[in-house]
Design a protein around this nucleic acid. Structure first.
Lengths: 147, 147
DNA sequence: ATTTTTTGTAATCATTGACATTACATCTAA
DNA sequence: TTAGATGTAATGTCAATGATTACAAAAAAT
């Protein structure tokens, strides 16, 4: 299975915050329109991002802002915040390998460190991209829209 | 969502092939016992590995063998063979971002290359591990079982 | 040639997670 | 006090995973 669209959705939300901050109030309805995703889904996602201290959400009055400078928020922070995979483990293991078979009872010893290496490679790349990078590219593409 | 257990299952299957080759006939029932997974699931998986020319399966008489030298089969080959993710894309995108919103209509421009970089980092690590590495570690752990 | 073992595959089923949707309580600025 | 938002519970739909039963087809062994 693919990694949940919650991740790309969360990035989309930050792109909106960066772009429309000041100009519009970035509410869950606003975000629902831009992403074409149900507002309740957006609100749940905002809840996860808030729990991870990545955004502030104004109750009552409404609106969302980044909780930190953009160069201090990485894609990995967002990936972890929106809980894309269970237990933080990218690979799903078959549940009860046989303890009677020598391979079955050692498969975790044999395999776990290799799976971690693969996952680390991915997370290292996730950590190398910040929302400041996103902001720059967003500006670039929006500016080039009407040349 | 996590990556399907088909991947770890396929690795387990190869560990069995490497370990029991010659000693036992590695049938779908044998593998089903070692992995504790239904034999029909195993057979489907063997079908995918066969389609990718990674194994040979003997009809009638039964049994499975590797189709190439072990150092020529990488984890990436297996990952691709068992079709863990749709379209070969690790990240699932929300389907129809708004074309009325400047962010919505540019989100793919902004994001796609970054997602590819992350996926490439992971696949590069997958490609760096071969079944020969697996065989060595399997031997090591089995040899150490009764010190 | 027949039997036996095994693979290949279709058909069902249960379970799970993703995402959509309705409804409503709660919060807060104006 | 009210209007506009958020927070969240409850339901529903859909797709993917994996289990399971059943059986046809292959091929070695007798």
């Amino acid at each position: 299975m693919q990694i949940s669209s919650r991740f790309t959705l969360a990035i989309h939300i930050f792109a909106c915050i960066e772009t429309f901050q000041g100009e519009y109030k970035v509410t869950s309805d606003f975000l629902a329109q831009s992403t074409n995703v149900n507002p309740v889904i957006i609100r749940k996602l905002l809840g996860q991002l808030k729990n991870a201290d990545l955004i502030d959400v104004a109750r009552g009055t409404g609106g969302t802002t980044a909780a930190k400078p953009l160069n201090e928020i990485t894609f990995l922070d967002i990936y972890r915040a929106v809980d894309c995979i269970e237990n933080g483990e990218l690979f799903h293991f078959h549940e009860n390998p046989s303890t009677d078979c020598p391979v079955g009872r050692n498969i975790h010893h044999i395999l776990d460190d290799k799976l971690i290496r693969i996952q680390d490679a991915m997370e290292k790349e996730l950590a190398s991209i910040t929302l400041e990078d996103l902001r720059k590219d967003t500006q670039k593409y929006l500016a080039n829209e009407h040349p």
